[in-house]
Design a protein around this nucleic acid. Sequence first.
DNA 1: GTCTATAGCTGGATAGAC
DNA 2: GTCTATCCAGCTATAGAC
Lengths: 205, 205
Amino acid sequence: MAARRARAGDPTTRNALLDAAQELMLHEGYAAVTTRRVTARAGVNSALVYYYFDTMDGLFVALFQRGAERSFERLKEALTSDQPLWGFWELIHDRSGSALTMEFIALANHRKAIRAEIAEYSRKFRRAQLEALSAVMERYGLDPDRWPPSSVIVILSAISRFLLIEEAFDVDVGHAETEAMVEDFLRTIEGERSRGGRARVPRSH
Amino acid sequence: MAARRARAGDPTTRNALLDAAQELMLHEGYAAVTTRRVTARAGVNSALVYYYFDTMDGLFVALFQRGAERSFERLKEALTSDQPLWGFWELIHDRSGSALTMEFIALANHRKAIRAEIAEYSRKFRRAQLEALSAVMERYGLDPDRWPPSSVIVILSAISRFLLIEEAFDVDVGHAETEAMVEDFLRTIEGERSRGGRARVPRSH
DNA sequence: GTCTATAGCTGGATAGAC
DNA sequence: GTCTATCCAGCTATAGAC
């Protein structure tokens, strides 16, 4: 990892740049995140990106890290709630949170710095998930030979992400049935979802 | 859909351009697929991209369609083989085939023409899968309330793609257990995989 | 910290000769 | 069909004034 300036600078401007980059990435894709467009949206001079982040890569990495830290907090909350499995499922199946993630995955295809960052955080997340949910599933008396916790985590994550990706293409054959299967599974081992679970945001068409 | 020239031209040159674009996309990501680099690799003049495909979008769409048609042939083969479920799983879990697909999905984030093309083909594929595998599962006596064919298809597809994406980031926690679960499932309803199934290409590290 | 100005590059696309 | 030559836009990044 090369030395990075990590300039303190004015946190207001720095955050404005990150916010602008995030909005652009979310609504127009990472390709829209250019020096000029980010700074225009943030209302500051275009040279400031390089003052705060050294390079565009630096901006992307900082943005990813900021999001990852926030997500990690939410993960810990979900995993220590009354219904950790339901909490986990709702967290990963949240549209607004995963759209950015998917954009970063696409970006990682041709940005090595991003790739390394995502890999590192993915392992950290998976470790936390595995640790917490293994204990939970043991407590529920789930047979670990039939349902290895790591597989449960992988399969839930896989289903969630796949459905969200397909939705983005307006493909939804089999989605309702699959979500129903997942929810049946969760109900069977963790009971009915109690109130207080975050409501899913309905899809706008 | 705007009128496209769809020029006949010299199929040799046309194919050389598509081959060059595919190689670049696979090995360096779609961002490497530029007029100049494609034509340099194909060994032809840079203006020829526009003669054959009108725009870069046209080149991408043509490349996607060529691949989709080939994939569709392989899908039909798999679905009409002795072990359609095993065939289906091995087809979607094939590394070489899915790498390009994932690159196209990333590309679709900011190329509308590609997005439309992928959506159309996805539905066509899903329809064919659903039709063939519904019949197969009914023949196997699988309870459609417990295992809706559309869900089985979605879940297998989801797992496959998720594992391949994570592998690209060198994350593989829980992968072996999950693949084992899938294969157990396939064995239970379709029996041991018979010889003649295409061998998985081992991963190079 | 924030600005102006600009260097240096790479890309998509076209006109027109052969 | 294939080429040369070229236009123009947009990008990253830097130097240096304020």
